Computed example of a mutant assay.
Amino acid sequence: MGRLATGEMKRLKPSKAALAPLGKQGVSAYFLLGIIAFLWGLNYAVVRVGLESLDPMLFLMLRFGVSAILMFGLLRWKEGSIGISPGDLWKFIALGIIGTTMLESFVVVSIDYTTLANSSILSIAPWPIFAAIFAPIFTKERIRRSLIGYGLVSMLGVILVILAGGSFSLDSDLLLGNLLAFSVSVCGGFYSAACIPILQKYSALRMTTWMFSFGTLFMLPFTTKAWGATDWAGIGWSTIGALACNIFVITIICFLLWNKAMPQIGAATASFYRYLTPLAAALSGVLFFQEPVYSGQLVGACLMFMGLIGISLPAARSGTVKQKAGSSLN
């Protein structure tokens, strides 16, 4: 990385256009976050196909590792450099470990140790709460009363969507999986708040590239056995297609757009849009695996949309939320 020259440091700072709203003629940040969260939910069906031939941790490492390599090339082409300030190195390492290695690994592992319903509720429902807790530490984001009220409505909706299609249990045999799933929310809330000060200094592309790089690096020790145990010759086109979709669409495009849009409306507000993910996951089960739809899921979906609309409208009327970095990551 080395010490950066003055000219390169200027290139590191995102332009005013990069930090401005997505444009009067473009899609709003709210709509964009909703679309991305929905795509992440549909991706559950795609991942299920990919895991038929690949170990879960190996799938994750390939997904984020290949994405990071491609993004370094894109970063060099778009911004003319790939470096970061040496003083910020520890911030990217922390984001990589918590926001990529731990978060993504806990999602995959928790499913093996608890029910899908438990994993979905505990990893998604508390996420915005922790984003709201961490937000004042890293930013000066103000938590509105309407955000809390409508957020609870959305949370109730997501719980209904998940419970209607499965059974939630706090059985002691599922304790490890439940704790791992709950840890996803803690890691996700931290990541959502902690990356905003960094996005005020670096572009979404540069921040995401380095976060994925360090996240992949710390995944490597957990994939050593899987490399030799995988039948590489037997991997079919369906698995290759699932991995390619995850790399290009779900990881590179979605993460870049999410990290660009999130600072415009605040970490806590943006986190509630992740409630669309389980709804889309349930829909993907219906479309691709002929899973049944229950009336409770439809009621939950309506509550989620009501809550998200309520969250979005007050912020939209008052203008874009302006983030100011706190002292913790400076």
Score class of each variant (00 low, 15 high):
residue 157 G to I: 00
residue 164 A to L: 02
residue 133 I to R: 03
residue 187 C to F: 07
residue 166 G to A: 11
residue 122 L to G: 02
residue 144 R to I: 10
residue 134 F to V: 14
residue 150 Y to C: 02
residue 139 T to Y: 00
residue 187 C to A: 10
residue 162 I to K: 01
residue 204 A to M: 04
residue 161 V to G: 04
residue 215 G to C: 09
residue 188 G to A: 08
residue 213 S to D: 13
residue 148 I to R: 01
residue 166 G to F: 10
residue 195 C to F: 05
residue 143 I to C: 05
residue 198 I to M: 08
residue 163 L to G: 14
residue 136 P to H: 11
residue 114 T to C: 09
residue 210 W to A: 03
residue 129 I to R: 07
residue 133 I to C: 14
residue 114 T to I: 15
residue 146 S to L: 08
residue 169 S to H: 10
residue 144 R to Y: 15
residue 111 I to D: 05
residue 152 L to N: 05
residue 143 I to G: 00
residue 132 A to S: 08
residue 105 S to F: 14
residue 189 G to K: 02
residue 137 I to M: 05
residue 185 S to V: 01
residue 129 I to M: 07
residue 193 A to E: 03
residue 168 F to R: 11
residue 124 I to D: 04
residue 215 G to A: 11
residue 123 S to A: 06
residue 175 L to I: 15
residue 135 A to K: 06
residue 178 N to D: 12
residue 124 I to N: 02
residue 163 L to D: 07
residue 153 V to W: 01
residue 216 T to H: 08
residue 121 I to E: 03
residue 219 M to F: 12
residue 158 V to G: 10
residue 168 F to G: 13
residue 150 Y to F: 15
residue 222 F to G: 11
residue 157 G to A: 06
residue 140 K to A: 14
residue 135 A to R: 02
residue 150 Y to L: 00
residue 203 S to M: 14
residue 200 Q to M: 13
residue 146 S to E: 14
residue 209 T to A: 10
residue 152 L to Y: 07
residue 203 S to T: 11
residue 166 G to L: 12
residue 128 P to E: 01
residue 131 A to G: 06
residue 128 P to N: 05
residue 162 I to P: 04
residue 192 S to N: 06
residue 168 F to E: 04
residue 174 L to S: 02
residue 145 R to Y: 11
residue 198 I to Q: 13
residue 107 V to D: 01
residue 154 S to R: 00
residue 207 M to G: 04
residue 126 P to N: 12
residue 220 L to V: 15
residue 153 V to I: 10
residue 110 S to H: 07
residue 168 F to N: 11
residue 111 I to S: 03
residue 137 I to W: 06
residue 127 W to C: 15
residue 159 I to S: 08
residue 209 T to F: 05
residue 190 F to Y: 07
residue 128 P to C: 13
residue 122 L to Y: 09
residue 182 F to Y: 05
residue 161 V to H: 00
residue 191 Y to E: 10
residue 191 Y to Q: 15
residue 143 I to N: 01
residue 172 S to P: 07
residue 193 A to I: 09
residue 195 C to R: 06
residue 171 D to I: 10
residue 196 I to A: 06
residue 195 C to T: 09
residue 121 I to Q: 07
residue 201 K to Q: 12
